[in-house]
């Protein structure tokens, strides 16, 4: 592959949500360690998938990139500028280039606004188009996402889930962003509709040279759409690799278990598949385990796993893993 250009560089990103007690004098009594020292790059034109179980910090990572949450610490460098340090008008201008598509295609659209208004709103806020040019742009966007431009005066409730998600996509595209954070964009949709939206996202990416951070817990869909995948567990990235590398040679014990838990739509394969069944639940992010976060459920855990936190380091070109015994698990 040719030299790839880093569009977004995330370095040692930390986001803690303080837990407050007391009615009048609020004091912090601890924090939810939602994201705890996460680093990765997203290359221009690629799709980076972010997977992991509920509560592992995927949405928080996405929202912190957009500065919807300000990071507790760490850098978010987008085209050479650290968004974490930008404020006011400067941040607003940069933020145009990064948009988000949300999970719930109903809750994320204002029910009292027409579709045309919803899609035009970002252009009005950022004063990119107005008047007839704006109207034209709205029509263009509607056809781009496969909706009839005649629908501009309809309201969100008049559309199906898949169509609403298309409206969300059209709005996200209104400002010609470079990066789109897709936070579970298809989880709320029916199986037969999911493929429609995924195909649309793929087509738009090619046509507009978009870059995606694609967040989901459905590993098979993430693998389908992504070039590279980062696996998160309890606020950290435990493994990051090319889509096929991760599937063919998962190294981290958690990735191995996660992959083995995904059911295949194939009874012939399922019949003979051996599963790694994890014991217990994910621990609380308020008081995460010392050392390796996965050690309480890891069948290979040793003393060092409680004492030291394993770094996310490269095992093979482009294949990163955060486990003390990565080399042992990598050899196959």
């Amino acid at each position: 592959m040719a030299e790839r250009e880093v569009l977004l560089h995330v370095e040692n990103l930390v986001k803690h949500f303080p837990i407050k007690k007391g009615v009048i004098f609020q004091r912090s009594v601890g924090a939810v360690h939602a994201v705890d020292d996460v680093s990765f790059d997203i290359f221009r034109g690629e799709t980076l998938g972010l997977v992991g179980e509920s509560g592992c910090g995927k949405s928080t990572t996405g929202r912190t990139i957009l500065q919807l949450h300000r990071p507790t610490s760490g850098k978010i460098i987008f085209e050479g500028e650290n968004l974490a340090e930008l404020k006011g008008e400067k941040l607003r201008r940069k933020r145009r280039d990064i948009q988000m598509i949300f999970q719930d295609p109903y809750a994320s659209l204002n029910p009292r606004m027409t579709v045309g208004k919803i899609i035009a709103e970002p252009m009005e806020i950022h004063k990119t188009f107005s008047g007839a040019a704006k109207e034209r742009r709205v029509q263009e966007l509607l056809s781009l996402v496969g909706l009839n431009p005649a629908f501009v005066n309809r309201y969100p409730h008049e559309f199906s889930g898949g169509q609403r998600q298309r409206i969300g996509v059209a709005r996200a595209l209104a400002l010609e962003p470079k990066l789109i954070v897709c936070d579970e964009p298809i989880s709320a949709l029916d199986v037969s509709i999911q493929a429609q939206v995924v195909n649309l996202l793929e087509d738009l990416q090619k046509e507009l040279n978009l870059t995606y951070l694609f967040i989901a817990h459905d590993l098979s869909m993430v693998r389908h759409i992504s070039d590279r995948i980062a696996v998160m567990y309890l606020g950290i990235i435990v493994e990051l690799a090319d889509r096929n590398m991760l599937y063919q040679n998962p190294i981290h014990p958690y990735s191995q278990a996660l992959l083995s838990a995904v059911p295949f739509p194939d009874p012939f394969i399922e019949e003979t598949r051996e599963r790694i069944i994890l014991e217990g639940d994910v621990p609380s992010p308020i008081n995460p385990p010392s050392g390796c976060r996965f050690r309480t459920r890891c069948r290979y855990a040793e003393d060092i796993c409680a004492a030291e936190r394993p770094a996310l380091s490269e095992v093979a070109p482009g294949h990163f893993c955060a486990c003390h015994f990565r080399d042992r698990f990598a050899r196959k």
């Binding site: 179980e53 590993l219 278990a257 996660l258 059911p263 069944i277 994890l278 639940d281």
Partner: peptide, 8 residues
């Protein structure tokens, strides 16, 4: 439920 719990 999450997939690892689903598998359980």
């Amino acid at each position: 439920l999450d997939v690892t719990i689903q598998a359980q």
